[in-house]
Computed example of a mutant assay.
Amino acid sequence: MDRWNSGLTLFFSLLVEAFPFLLLGVTFSSVLLFFIDERRLIQLIPKHPMLGALIGSMIGFLFPVCECGNVPVARRLLVQGAPTSTAIGFLLAAPTVNPIVFWATWTAFRDQPEIVFMRIGFSLFIATIVGWVFSSQKDVRPLLNPAVARAMPKVERRSPAEATSPLLQSGTFLIGQPGKTYQLDGSLLQSVAIGENPVLSKSWRDRLRLVMENIILELRELGGILILGTAIASLVQVAIPRDLVLSLGQGPISSIVVMMFLAWIVSICSTVDAFFALSFASTFTTGSLLAFLVFGPMIDLKNLALLTSVFRTRAIAYLFILAGQLAFLLALLVNLYWG
């Protein structure tokens, strides 16, 4: 009974901790949708895959969201035609590479400033490399959730035999300028005739109303996934004794593996995970602490559920493997050569 009580307490604590940041991400993505011409912003992003991934990884400094709030923003970037490398870079780096997390990590590890700066540097490096790798996929739609893939702007030209009239497609449509229609696919506004966002011509009152409607739609979709992922993370965490985790964290390799697994299971928000890692500072290696702080915000059990709203299972597996391998190698180098 005590374990069930602990699991229930953990479930609500994780949910209460994560939901405000999910709300922040959903609100920000809705503002992008209804108040900003995202296409002009996206045009400023470098077309070079490596530079695009680096810029995407650094956007978190301007828009601080955690691993619960970065998913809807990354989804908006993909839908509006941002380079895949930029969206992936933002998705992986934004939960860590932002001023809020920097301040929280500095507060927890002020006696070890190298951990603070290596956490930011390693996160930037991994997000940029993974984003660059994903850019090699010319057409990323096969890796995306079908709803997201349908909402992305069409870049390829199709033959007349393959073309389908928008009026024959399912969904809800908005009437725009003469000769143009705009499809509202769930919580994603899709311009069937690619051009300026038609909502930008509406009054501020109408925009605010549409923002609230879109926030409710996305919270209904992502909130359910968040609750499911949080429940799984809570159940798994209370089933693993803490003493067992501590006994495995002595070696340069085993400690990294344990802390990466712990980061995946615990699913603590990146704004407070530094204080959790600090409790292991006296018994775990520096590299393993960094592995926890870098890998956890990128791919954790709670975040995996949210990622299904953007990617197919195969793409999530690619993200998990690539980010995990790079985090492990960097942490191992720290253990071997840093001390």
Rank of each mutant, 00 (worst) to 15 (best):
D2F: 14
R3Q: 10
W4P: 00
N5L: 14
N5F: 12
L8K: 14
F11A: 03
F12K: 13
S13L: 10
L15F: 15
F21A: 06
L22I: 04
L22C: 05
L24N: 02
V26W: 00
S30R: 11
V31M: 14
L33A: 14
F35I: 04
E38T: 13
R39Y: 03
K47F: 03
H48I: 07
M58Y: 05
M58W: 11
L62S: 14
F63P: 01
V65Y: 08
R76L: 00
L78P: 04
G81A: 03
A82K: 00
T84V: 15
T84F: 05
I88G: 09
L91H: 02
A93F: 07
A93E: 07
A94I: 03
T96D: 06
T96K: 07
V97P: 06
N98W: 08
I100T: 06
V101R: 09
F102Y: 14
F102E: 04
P113G: 07
P113A: 08
E114N: 07
V116R: 02
F117V: 14
M118Q: 10
A127Y: 06
V133Q: 10
F134M: 15
S136T: 11
D139G: 07
V140Q: 05
P142E: 05
M152R: 13
V155L: 12
E156Q: 11
S159N: 11
A161Y: 12
E162G: 03
E162C: 06
S165D: 13
P166R: 06
P166W: 09
L168C: 01
L168W: 02
L168K: 01
I175L: 11
K180V: 12
K180H: 12
K180E: 14
T181R: 12
T181Y: 06
Q183K: 15
L184Y: 08
D185R: 15
D185K: 10
S187D: 10
G195P: 06
E196F: 08
L200D: 14
K202A: 12
R205T: 13
D206H: 12
V211W: 15
V211I: 13
E213Y: 05
N214M: 11
G223Y: 04
G224R: 08
G224T: 09
L226H: 04
G229I: 00
T230C: 06
V236I: 15
Q237P: 00
V238I: 15
A239P: 00
I240E: 04
R242C: 00
V245P: 01
S247C: 01
L248A: 06
Q250K: 12
Q250G: 15
G251E: 08
P252T: 09
V258H: 02
M260S: 05
F261H: 01
L262T: 04
I268D: 02
C269E: 02
S270E: 03
V272D: 02
V272P: 01
D273M: 02
D273C: 00
F276S: 03
S279D: 01
F284K: 02
L289Q: 08
L289G: 03
L290P: 09
L290V: 13
P297Q: 09
M298I: 11
D300N: 15
L301W: 03
K302V: 11
L307T: 00
L307C: 05
V310N: 10
R312M: 13
A315S: 13
I316N: 10
A317C: 10
L319W: 01
F320D: 02
F320I: 04
L322R: 02
Q325D: 02
L326E: 11
A327D: 06
F328K: 07
L329E: 08
L329W: 14
L329K: 07
L330R: 07
L330V: 14
L332N: 08
L332Q: 08
G339N: 13
